[in-house]
């Protein structure tokens, strides 16, 4: 990390020191992590929706999950931070390892899994009763953490989510006063505040306009240097723009569970797929 070189006023240096210390704190615990899913099968009641999906999500990379609606990619994503089991009739088989530790084993509690593997949902869902700043800090209170300098943490997270410039002068306003795209970036900032090693994003831009989408995509590219990101998207251009690795999910015929047809470097999946079904999908011939 470089030291401050340009001349600054005393006040500037003071705030800068705080930010630096928070950044150190952000990097200190884990750094970025890898997730290895092996033979993951998911059920809702008797219905098998996903079968034997294996995928490695590399540290510091963006992995995109693509495929037509209903192919199980959101279910797969939700199984990665134990949100799947919140549906009463849900069941799962296989293993999901975060840096080699099975997240469904005794070694990890669901709350620990979820604070290390954060999630951003399809529809922006800031807490309506909380201010912008309190939304960012909500995860700390929820998981019983505390931070020595909440103000600096709010600024740091909003900066990383690309929202700071737009809201820095109204942190006390309600989170719902923001536009849809801003709300989604607030949700990203909120997820970042608990210092996750992995961030899961379930179609984060599907409710947003193209300009907001572009801002979020930039944010994803910046974040992936520190955090492993897994993103579900319907938008194949988006998958090409933001992801390093890509997995294509497909339900072969109605009633079948979803399976991973092909996974690999994004460029290869899109330009030179090994499976004809992948080729058909990425070239828009069905789906």
């Amino acid at each position: 990390m470089t030291t401050v070189e340009s001349p600054r006023t005393a006040a500037d240096t003071a705030t800068n020191r705080q930010v630096v210390s928070s950044e150190l704190l952000a990097e200190e615990p884990h750094g970025s992590s890898r997730i290895d899913a092996t033979d993951v099968t998911c059920w809702f009641g008797k219905r098998k929706v996903l079968e034997r999906c294996s995928l490695s999500m590399e540290p510091g990379k963006v992995t995109a999950l693509i495929g037509p609606s209903g192919c199980g990619k959101s279910t797969f994503l939700r199984s990665l931070n134990r949100m799947h089991e919140l549906v009463p009739v849900a069941a799962i088989a296989g293993t999901i390892e975060l840096d080699g530790v099975d997240i469904y084993s005794e070694e990890m509690s669901p709350t620990e899994v979820r604070s290390r593997i954060g999630m951003v949902f399809q529809k922006p869902n800031p807490f309506p009763a909380m201010s912008i700043a309190d939304n960012v800090l909500a995860g700390l209170g929820l998981s019983g953490m505390s931070h020595e300098d909440p103000k600096a943490l709010v600024e740091q997270c909003l900066r990383r989510a690309g929202l700071w410039a737009e809201v820095s002068d109204r942190l006390d306003e309600g989170g719902m006063s923001l536009s849809g795209g801003q709300q989604q970036r607030l949700c990203i900032a909120r997820a970042l505040a608990v210092h996750p090693d992995v961030l899961l994003m379930d179609e984060p831009c599907s409710a947003l306009d193209p300009i907001s989408t572009r801002v979020i995509e930039q944010t994803i590219r910046e974040l992936c240097e520190e955090i492993t990101i897994v993103i579900v998207t319907h938008n194949m251009q988006q998958a090409q723009r933001v992801s390093d690795t890509c997995a294509f999910f497909l339900v072969e015929s109605i009633g079948d569970p979803g399976r991973i047809v092909e996974a690999g470097p994004t460029a290869q999946v899109f330009e030179n797929p090994s499976d004809p079904r992948t080729y058909d999908y990425v070239t828009g011939q069905f789906g």
Binding site: N81, M83, L86, T111, E112, R114, S115, R116, G118, M119, F121, K123, N125, P126, F127, P128, A138, G139, G141, L142, S143, G144, C187, R190, A191, V194
Partner: peptide, 21 residues
């Protein structure tokens, strides 16, 4: 809204945390 409750749980909140917050 279920989305609010899920947001709280996805942040690493316990069920009690979700109820309280």
């Amino acid at each position: 809204p279920r989305s609010q409750c899920e947001a709280a749980l996805a942040l690493g909140g316990s069920r009690w945390g979700m109820i309280k917050e």
